[in-house]
Simulated assay, not measured.
Amino acid sequence: MAIDHEAAERGDKRLEALADPYLQRPGVDWGRMFSTTGLRVRGKIFGLVNHAGNLMVKIPATRADTLESTGAATRMTMAGKIMREWVEMPYDAGEEAWRTLLDEAYTYLEEITPRS
């Protein structure tokens, strides 16, 4: 995948602006995944900006199905494999849509990630 540096930077700035409330929560910090930096809870990434500048999140598969069927997001494909719980939402969906999806992803990962 070619990197669109301008789009990635624009997406990163939006994610950084949305990150503060999450970073105030216990166990949330920045971490690396897919050669980029994203928000994670207890070591598990729940949201990041991919090289195309889109928000990429992990959510329940049934929610991913809904978002995909409405065209609000698309499933991620990695090495030819469709990732059932990972979707990407375009930058043009807007900040509020990103905020909503990021919150869904945080809630999901917070629930399924074991506490030490």
Rank of each mutant, 00 (worst) to 15 (best):
G80V: 06
K58T: 13
K81S: 11
H5Q: 14
Q24R: 15
A72H: 08
E96G: 05
E110N: 15
M83H: 10
H51V: 09
V87G: 02
I45Q: 05
L39V: 05
V28W: 09
A79Q: 14
T37S: 07
Y106P: 03
V49F: 00
A17Q: 14
P60M: 09
K81C: 02
R115V: 14
M56T: 14
G94W: 04
R10W: 04
A72V: 08
L55N: 05
D4C: 03
L101V: 03
G53W: 00
K13P: 00
D65G: 01
E6G: 05
Y108L: 10
L101C: 03
Y91E: 08
E95C: 02
Y106N: 01
V28G: 07
A79I: 01
T37D: 14
H51M: 02
Y22Q: 02
M83A: 11
L109A: 12
P26V: 00
I59Q: 02
L23P: 06
R32G: 00
E110S: 15
T36V: 15
L101F: 01
L23E: 07
M56Y: 06
H5F: 11
K13S: 08
K58M: 08
A52Y: 03
G11I: 03
M78H: 15
A105P: 12
Y22S: 04
E88W: 12
R32V: 10
F46Q: 04
F46L: 03
T74R: 15
P26Y: 00
M76V: 15
Q24C: 06
E85C: 09
S116G: 15
W30I: 09
E16W: 07
T100I: 03
T66W: 10
P60W: 12
D12W: 07
E6T: 14
L39E: 03
E96N: 09
G80L: 10
K81F: 09
D65P: 05
Y91L: 09
D103M: 02
A19T: 09
Y22F: 13
L109K: 15
P26W: 00
I45W: 01
W30L: 08
T100R: 01
K58S: 13
R42T: 10
T37N: 11
K44E: 06
E9V: 08
A105R: 07
E6I: 14
D4H: 07
D92S: 12
G43E: 03
V57F: 03
L48C: 08
A105F: 10
G80P: 11
T70L: 12
T66P: 00
G94L: 07
S35T: 13
G47C: 09
A19N: 06
A2R: 13
P60F: 09
D4I: 02
N50M: 06
L101A: 04
V28C: 08
P90I: 00
A105E: 12
R84N: 06
I112P: 11
V57I: 14
R10P: 05
A2F: 05
V49H: 01
A8E: 13
P90K: 04
D20T: 12
A72Q: 13
A2S: 14
W86M: 08
T100Y: 00
H5D: 05
W98C: 07
